[in-house]
Amino acid sequence: NKFNKEMRNAYWEIALLPNLNNQQKRAFIRSLYDDPSQSANLLAEAKKLNDAQA
């Protein structure tokens, strides 16, 4: 399933972002599970926040 693969990839990328705190990571990951079709958008948002907090 395409969404499962995208979701799994996004999950690990988000989990490993160095500048997000655990609460932020959990919120993004919860959103991934709520709507796997938004994986790419959620990952992009997480990366933006990660960069902003660098």
Rank of each mutant, 00 (worst) to 15 (best):
E13C: 13
A44D: 13
K2A: 13
R8T: 10
Q38H: 09
R30H: 11
D35E: 05
A40Y: 05
P18G: 07
E6D: 05
A15N: 14
L20T: 00
K48D: 09
D35P: 01
E13A: 14
N22P: 12
L32Y: 01
N50W: 01
E13H: 14
K25F: 10
F3L: 15
L42G: 02
A46Q: 00
I14N: 00
K25N: 01
K2I: 14
F28R: 03
W12N: 13
R8V: 13
K48R: 09
I14T: 01
Q24V: 05
W12R: 14
F28K: 04
N4K: 02
K5D: 14
A54I: 08
A44V: 10
L32D: 00
Y33K: 06
A15K: 15
E6R: 01
E45S: 09
F3K: 15
R8A: 14
L20R: 00
N1Y: 00
N22H: 14
P36A: 04
R30M: 14
Q24P: 00
N21K: 06
F28H: 03
K25E: 01
N50E: 02
Q24I: 08
R26E: 10
S39G: 13
P36V: 03
L17N: 02
E13M: 07
A10S: 04
A15E: 06
N19F: 08
S37C: 08
Q24A: 06
Q53Y: 06
I29D: 01
S39L: 15
A44F: 09
Q23N: 10
R8D: 04
W12M: 09
N9L: 15
L49R: 05
Y33N: 02
L20G: 00
I29K: 05
Q38A: 07
P18W: 03
E6P: 02
L42I: 12
I29Y: 06
E6A: 07
P18Y: 04
N41K: 12
A40C: 11
A10N: 04
W12L: 12
D34S: 05
S31Q: 10
N21M: 07
L43T: 13
K25Y: 03
W12P: 00
P18A: 14
N22Q: 11
Q24C: 05
R30G: 11
E13N: 07
P36H: 04
N1C: 12
A54F: 06
P18I: 04
M7T: 03
K48A: 12
R30D: 12
N22G: 10
N19G: 05
A15V: 13
R26K: 09
S37F: 05
Q38W: 09
N21H: 10
R8W: 15
N21A: 07
D51S: 07
N4R: 02
L32F: 03
E13V: 12
E6V: 04
K48E: 13
A46K: 00
K47I: 05
S31H: 11
K47G: 03
S39V: 14
Y11Q: 12
M7V: 09
L17K: 07
S37H: 02
N21I: 09
D34F: 07
N19Q: 12
S31W: 12
L42D: 01
I29P: 00
A46E: 00
D35Y: 04
A27M: 09
N4M: 03
A54P: 10
F3N: 15
N4W: 14
L43H: 02
D35W: 04
A54S: 12
W12K: 13
Q23C: 13
Y11T: 07
N1L: 03
L20N: 00
S39K: 14
N21Q: 11
Q38I: 06
N22Y: 11
Q53R: 06
E13Y: 14
A46R: 00
N22I: 07
L32P: 00
K47T: 04
N1P: 15
Y11S: 07
L49F: 10
A52T: 08
R26G: 13
L32S: 01
W12V: 07
N9T: 14
N9G: 06
